[in-house]
Design a protein around this nucleic acid. Structure first.
Lengths: 253, 253
DNA sequence: CTAATTTGTCTATTGATATAGACAACCGTA
DNA sequence: TACGGTTGTCTATATCAATAGACAAATTAG
């Protein structure tokens, strides 16, 4: 199924034809079927390929123009604006910015909010704490070239990591913040990955359109001797990000 | 964002309200908000929660009843039928059936088709072959309890692995088939992960409904000394499968 | 300049989607 | 048995989605 365009749509599915076509065009761009600034096939050609009326194709294109993905020029054609998806590294030594070098010109993490709360069952289990013990929650957003590429919530033991919220706000880096607590290296113990449609929160947090897909990772980081230090849930916009798992992780200084 | 239901929908998004509600109910079930055989809230309650008419909720429920996810009983209520998602292991030593033990009663791989074809650019690069060199492609489907949980295409060097299609048909296992070629152990070198809406092929291959989400992995397996032996693209139905990444992989005999 | 190609706009019609209200059928329980 | 709560069915109406055709406006090729 590599390199071949399905180019088929389903009627009476509850998803409007124009949206299905818009999604397929988005996918084709992401997969590399169209280069940047390349011209899309004419509306009539697309209408024939998908077996729909030209106006339906126009609705799809209008939505993508609205999203800043395409630019339509009367008499000339419709052209691709958007760039490729970001390939986001994930593995035993995942760090936010390390693996994105060369793909974007600018990237950083923003601390949106922090709070102390009692540990839920899930968080307590992951961190090896008693249920209801105080944990610090950090809400962060990762951005690259001004576009959100991740949205995460991370939990830490409040007793051991008191003040990590301030460190995070100052340094903008989990790795740097953990160093202040004597943790110079850590590993990703486990990652559970799933995908779903974006909910209302995702639409706001990741600047998505309704119907978009988010990748969700739930992970536990541990010290080198296996002590859990961080539990986190991250969301990535599938249209802008792919996750790259690599076996040959390099150690960080 | 853990454990809280967004319960909001978007109008004029190109996705019918009844489908958005159906997807949210599916998600809620998958996340565990409803136990198996549990009753859904009454239609009126759901209508109020989503801010829509009762008939719209009924359309969503009707779709899920059609899919075998819910069962509606007049006078009593609407009940959950479907089971939880499968947690599919993926990592340096991913094998199909090893990590699913205990989650299902029956699981196996079916070889759907095999062919010899010239290597595409992508396959040639991954396997370290010249472009156009003969490669064997195996099309497989993974099943658990009678439901498809994966659909994969795998490519092997046709010169080195001549006859692997027959071995695969006979043993139903990639690991066992590779043993016949003197490969007793291998590693996953890289995995690239993405998600998208199911296309027409996915709907057929994975028995999905239009609008469903598929997880896609593109991976390269290598021998212990780093020689690439297998390139594959796998698709998983996100509604039935989650991918579990683990750092502590155990060696296989 | 002319013709062909392509996007933009308009009108009209049909079917799907969503809302609204009313009432029937069925279940469990007081 | 009677009642409250629930799903099932019907009618009616308004809006969105999709099709159909025609023509205008802009660009490019000749």
């Amino acid at each position: 199924m590599i390199g071949q365009q399905a180019a088929s749509i389903e009627r009476r599915s509850g998803v409007a034809l124009w949206r299905q076509i818009a999604d397929q065009i988005l996918h084709a761009i992401a997969v590399g079927d169209f280069a940047e600034n390349a011209a899309l096939p004419p509306e009539m050609a697309l209408a024939e390929r998908y077996g729909v009326n030209r106006h339906t194709v126009r609705s799809a294109i209008a939505a993508l123009v609205q999203d800043g993905v395409l630019r339509a020029e009367q008499g000339r054609g419709t052209f691709v604006l958007s760039r490729k998806r970001l390939s986001y590294p994930i593995g035993a030594r995942t760090r936010f910015s390390a693996g994105l070098q060369g793909q974007t010109s600018e990237r950083h993490i923003v601390l949106l909010a922090s709070s102390v709360e009692p540990a839920s069952r899930r968080v307590a289990e992951a961190l090896g704490l008693a249920r209801g013990a105080d944990v610090i929650r950090l809400e962060t957003r990762g951005e690259a070239d001004g576009h959100p590429v991740s949205r995460a919530a991370a939990w830490f033991d409040a007793r051991r990591f008191a003040g990590i919220d301030a460190a995070m706000a100052e340094t903008g880096s989990v790795t740097a913040s953990l160093k202040r607590f004597g943790i110079n290296d850590y590993l990703r113990q486990s990652t559970v990955l799933s995908a779903r449609h974006a909910d209302a929160a995702d639409l706001v947090d990741l600047d998505l359109q309704p119907g978009a897909i988010v990748l969700v990772t739930i992970a536990v980081n541990v010290t080198l001797d296996g002590q859990p230090i961080q539990f986190s849930e991250s969301r990535f916009p599938a249209e802008r990000v792919e996750l790259r798992l690599s076996a040959n992780d390099q150690a960080m200084p």
